[in-house]
Computed example of a mutant assay.
Amino acid sequence: MSHILFDFFGTLVDYDDGHAPAPVKSAAMATALGRPMSADEFLTRWDSVWMAWESRCFSSHREFSMLDVAGSFLPDASPTELAAFVDVYIAEWNEGVRYLPGIEVLLSSLAGRYRLAVVSNTHEPDLVPAHLAAMGVAGLIDAVVTSVELGVRKPAPAIYESALTRLGIPASAAVFVGDNPSADYFGPRSLGMRSFLIDPAARHSAVPPGDRLSSIFDLPAVLL
């Protein structure tokens, strides 16, 4: 085994699994673009549009982008206005992302023995690379593969295959680590990758105990 492929959100960073908790600036921008609303009204309307996209794409594992959602949310806005709106919303959503103390040390140690990559579901192309740079670990990552760039999300086989092709390795040379059973454990295993699930509460009994981690910091011990 020569490569470690990581999920990002919930694995290398903690985050609030939902929409921006206090979208005051996003609501203000929507108001300025002709859709008056408070922050609370924004959350209700945004969630409705978001879930419509989720329902549309769920069965096919097709990925949608923040611009897709923004276009449905603000149908009269220009492309330039939509891009600016997405920037404002992402900045507010990022307030719920928390970097793990010690993650740079962990990844630096692993990079001394393995090549590292990130394979993440995300709706914004620049989001994961920007966080990796802010964390100070971008130089340790050989490849970043995201669902929005490919148009399909984990657990669609194509996203794992794209990562393996980009790295030039067979599935048997990689281990996958993440926090979602379908996307990060069973999906990679279906292609022949070894995988580990971050499951601190031991909620996923379908995953063997030896393949479950309490946190990402348990990974070095199981790779020995």
Rank of each mutant, 00 (worst) to 15 (best):
D16H: 15
V144R: 02
S172Y: 02
A70R: 04
A202S: 13
S38I: 10
S205V: 08
S205G: 07
G34Q: 05
V49A: 09
P220T: 07
L116A: 02
P129E: 09
G71W: 11
L106E: 03
G178Q: 02
K25H: 13
Y185F: 08
A111N: 12
W46C: 11
G10T: 07
D211G: 05
T122V: 14
L5P: 01
S109Q: 13
A143C: 12
S2K: 03
A32C: 10
H204F: 06
L43N: 08
D179G: 06
V177L: 07
R212H: 09
D68P: 00
V119L: 15
A32P: 04
D184Q: 02
P170Q: 02
L33S: 02
V137T: 07
D87P: 10
A174F: 02
Y160E: 08
L164R: 02
L74I: 05
A143L: 13
D14A: 11
P23T: 05
F186P: 07
G96V: 12
L100E: 13
Y185W: 03
E95T: 10
I90E: 11
A202Y: 12
A39Q: 06
M37W: 05
V13N: 09
A171G: 00
P79H: 03
Y15L: 06
N180T: 15
E54V: 13
F73S: 05
A91P: 08
A201H: 15
A52R: 14
E124L: 12
L150M: 08
L110N: 05
E149S: 13
S55N: 14
L110H: 07
L150S: 11
I216P: 04
H61L: 12
S215V: 10
G136N: 05
L213H: 06
M193S: 00
D17V: 12
L213D: 04
V69K: 00
P125S: 12
E54R: 15
D87E: 11
L150F: 08
V24A: 08
S195K: 00
D47K: 13
Y185R: 01
H61C: 12
D7C: 08
L5K: 01
F8V: 02
H3V: 15
D76I: 10
F58W: 15
I4Q: 00
G139L: 09
A77G: 06
G168D: 08
P125F: 10
I103Y: 04
Y99W: 14
I198W: 03
V24Q: 08
P101T: 08
P181Y: 06
A133L: 11
H3Q: 12
E54M: 11
V145T: 15
E161F: 03
S205E: 09
F9D: 10
F186R: 15
P200N: 05
A117K: 05
E41P: 01
S195Y: 00
A84S: 10
A27C: 03
R212A: 05
S172G: 11
S48G: 14
V86L: 07
G187F: 01
V177A: 08
E149F: 14
S55K: 14
R45Q: 13
G139K: 03
T146Y: 06
